[in-house]
């Protein structure tokens, strides 16, 4: 899973954002640089979350404010490409913002399944089915 995708993920159960990323294995895979794509994605990124994730994983120091364009800060764009596009989390965990749920990342796959792994969901499901019956 890329850091780019982490920036958009929320806990499906508690809806909390951001989720804390605790990687055990990180890989860097070189990909072709596209400044256009970075610029396209820039406005929808949560900059503060990205900055703190990048420094926690020791990927580099991003400037305090979002760079405006590729011309104004080409170095920041290069660094963004490295962080967002080339850094893959091979294994680790994602912890929801309120710390209630932990999700595993294994073999690059983030397992976000919430049923059958935890007894609390089955209760929730029962409630849901009761709601349906009421309808």
């Amino acid at each position: 899973m890329r850091i780019l995708t982490h920036n958009f993920m929320q806990c499906p159960r508690s809806k909390s954002y951001p989720m804390r990323l605790v990687p055990t294995e990180v890989e860097t895979v070189e990909t072709e640089y596209s400044g256009e794509f970075i610029e396209h994605m820039l406005k929808r990124l949560n900059w503060d979350v990205l900055r703190s994730t990048a420094s926690e994983l020791e990927l580099g120091e991003l400037p305090e404010t979002m760079p405006e364009s590729e011309e104004s800060n080409p170095e920041a764009f290069k660094l963004l490409h490295k962080i967002l596009m080339e850094t893959h989390v091979k294994s680790g965990t994602l912890v929801s913002g309120d710390g209630s749920t932990t999700y595993q990342i294994n073999n690059y796959i983030a397992n976000m399944m919430t049923t059958s792994t935890d007894p609390s969901t089955s209760n929730e499901q029962q409630k849901e089915s009761e709601d349906v019956d009421m309808e």
């Binding site: 899973m1 890329r2 780019l4 995708t5 958009f8 993920m9 929320q10 806990c11 499906p12 954002y17 990909t31 929808r44 073999n107 690059y108 796959i109 983030a110 397992n111 976000m112 399944m113 919430t114 049923t115």
Partner: peptide, 27 residues
Amino acid sequence: HVATARDVEGDLVERDAGEDLPFQANT
């Protein structure tokens, strides 16, 4: 797991689409 073995470029998430999608709005 076959997808990762094939070295696909995309990020993979295991999840039931019939439950809520684990992504922020406007993604």
